[in-house]
Design a protein around this nucleic acid. Sequence first.
DNA 1: GAAAATCCAGACAAAATTAATAGGGAATCT
DNA 2: AGATTCCCTATTAATTTTGTCTGGATTTTC
Lengths: 121, 121
Amino acid sequence: MSRSATGTIFSIQSLAEEERIPLKFLEQILLILRKGGIMHSRRGAGGGYQLVRPATRITVGEILELVDGPIELLPDGNSLSPGLTSAFQELQGEMQAWLTKMTLADVMQREQLRGAVSFDI
Amino acid sequence: MSRSATGTIFSIQSLAEEERIPLKFLEQILLILRKGGIMHSRRGAGGGYQLVRPATRITVGEILELVDGPIELLPDGNSLSPGLTSAFQELQGEMQAWLTKMTLADVMQREQLRGAVSFDI
DNA sequence: GAAAATCCAGACAAAATTAATAGGGAATCT
DNA sequence: AGATTCCCTATTAATTTTGTCTGGATTTTC
């Protein structure tokens, strides 16, 4: 019963129990994901959350940026030398590229290959 | 008068003044680099620090690991799903590869290209 | 022996990060 | 109306990180 299938709807509570995450904690994360355009929600009885797009079109980078904020190796007002700054910008670019290629579907496939616990979100 | 030339010796104090870093702070860093086998030091009058190897054979990753500890995207006792863990391990591997290819000489060349402040260490 | 310089262990505070908790408000279904 | 479920803001607590400072001890040169 994969919650990562596009149409599947589920409640915060049910997911919180399965993953053993505090309900109020999970609530905040899902809220962020909805505002970020990754999930859709419906209130009231029978409501819940569901993915807006198929997992093949949701990237890890997208989720990470929403939840953790922008991926930046360099601090905002960085005092590093221009050469180091340039180098780290390059690395950061490579990380971004990777994070943009890696989709939620890719990650879920890796769960399968490892044959372990089922994973959702 | 580049301090990154292999033979050049300099004192903590002179570098601290130039870079406007607290002397005692810089001292700790240089100490780490020496223990890590990147720098050599000589005590007493006329002593100081110098690079052991040419900058072409010192990598940014080496320095970073010494100063900041191991580069790890995943926390030590990570509770992530196996699929996510696997994915992040892959990314971490790519970062490591990049950091191992990028040498101090490469960084210094970028300083030149940007024509800005001279940079040492 | 005096001066110059590194060596070393530890204490400290401010800031940032992370995880969690709290308490109600608003919409929707039956 | 009442139950269900998401919505929203704020606060707390614990931990880690970062930068800095203290106070010497040791080695080397002159």
